[in-house]
Nucleic acid binder design. Structure first.
Length: 309
DNA sequence: AAGACGAAAGTGGTTGA
DNA sequence: TCAACAACTTTCGTCTT
């Protein structure tokens, strides 16, 4: 939901977005978070740490199990742990040993987290992501670690996957290419872990909306706000005409922006638009053609041409 | 000369048997 | 697991401004 009145105090941009669900306002130009009421994720893993002991029988995938999955060497201890629980009331030594293990395991996780969150922060600041996204991805990563999803994958790739997921959820999409460039992880690797992690954690991802890209592309091309809103309008028509499903959202966004720029006499070459959108001219041309066919925009373009003459 | 356009062949990922 | 398939890219030649 756009907020037309306010301006971003940081960059003066008008692309302020209110995310009602999260209760925050984000500037899409510079990533500044004006109001951030995100829940502190720290609470989540404390919950795991405390609840672990008594509920062994209740949850198969509860915290203690996943803690043990974190490290291969600890798996054997897990077996013993089952026995220990039966004896716990009788045998205090074993009980304390159990405590000791839990302590060690949780510090191992914390160490890993510390490392990973550093990496996450680095990538995040490289991409100039809002803080809310950073925290969201940190939460996702923490969950992933607790579930033992990192095993068999590099820490960095899971970080990248978590970031990608968080971006999508916050409607501040970054293309896989950008994540890839920032993190040094291959595109398909990020995609794989992203899919894996979101599936395992049951995170629902809304299909990314081309309109979410408009603001960023538009400011990269230094286009006027009018052009930008026109582009979004075009996008809406395109979606009604079912031109958007199955296509890459960046390509559609780029084409809409290109057309919109033509209409407002702020012509950019296909090359320029293609570069900031991370697609080729050909893709823009194809989408552009579809837009013209479907939305009878030729007239508007001709109008502005005549005006210029 | 640069940009726009289109055709043809190639690439990586998804889907369905 | 493999082949068909759609979207997208690369490359290149031609047309337009």
């Amino acid at each position: 939901m756009a907020i037309g009145v306010k301006k971003c105090p940081e960059c003066g941009g008008i692309n302020l977005f209110l995310n009602k669900e999260k209760g925050e306002v984000i500037c899409r130009d510079c990533g500044l978070v004006l109001e951030d009421k995100m829940v502190d994720f720290g609470q989540e893993w404390r919950e795991f740490g405390e609840g672990g002991e008594g509920e062994e029988s209740k949850r198969r995938t509860g915290a203690p199990m996943t803690y043990t999955q974190y490290d291969q060497g600890l798996v054997t201890k897990k077996k013993k742990k089952g026995d220990l629980f039966k004896l716990a009331s009788k045998d205090r030594n074993k009980f304390f040993r159990l405590r000791k293990w839990q302590y060690r395991i949780s510090t191992a996780i914390e160490r890993n987290l510390k490392l990973a969150l550093g990496e996450l922060k680095r990538v995040s600041s490289y991409l100039k992501l809002p803080k809310s996204v950073e925290e969201e991805s940190a939460r996702i990563y923490t969950l992933a670690v607790q579930r033992g999803l990192v095993r068999g994958r590099s820490m960095e790739s899971v970080v990248a996957g978590a970031l990608y997921a968080a971006c999508r959820r916050h409607e501040v999409p970054r293309a896989l290419d950008e994540l890839s460039e920032a993190s040094g992880i291959e595109k398909k690797e990020i995609g794989r872990t992203y899919r894996f992690v979101t599936r395992e954690l049951g995170i629902t991802i809304l299909p990314s909306n081309p309109a979410d890209y408009i603001a960023r592309f538009s400011s990269a091309l230094k286009l006027s706000p009018e052009t930008q809103s026109k582009a979004i309008e075009i996008l809406e028509h395109a979606q009604n005409a079912e031109l958007t499903s199955g296509r890459g959202p960046t390509g559609i966004a780029a084409a809409a922006l290109y057309v919109s720029a033509l209409i407002h006499g702020e012509k950019r070459t296909q090359r320029e638009v293609a570069d900031v959108a991370g697609v080729t001219e050909v893709t823009i041309r194809n989408r552009y053609k579809e837009l013209l066919d479907e939305l009878k925009l030729e007239k508007e373009i001709k109008k502005t041409k005549k005006k210029k003459k």
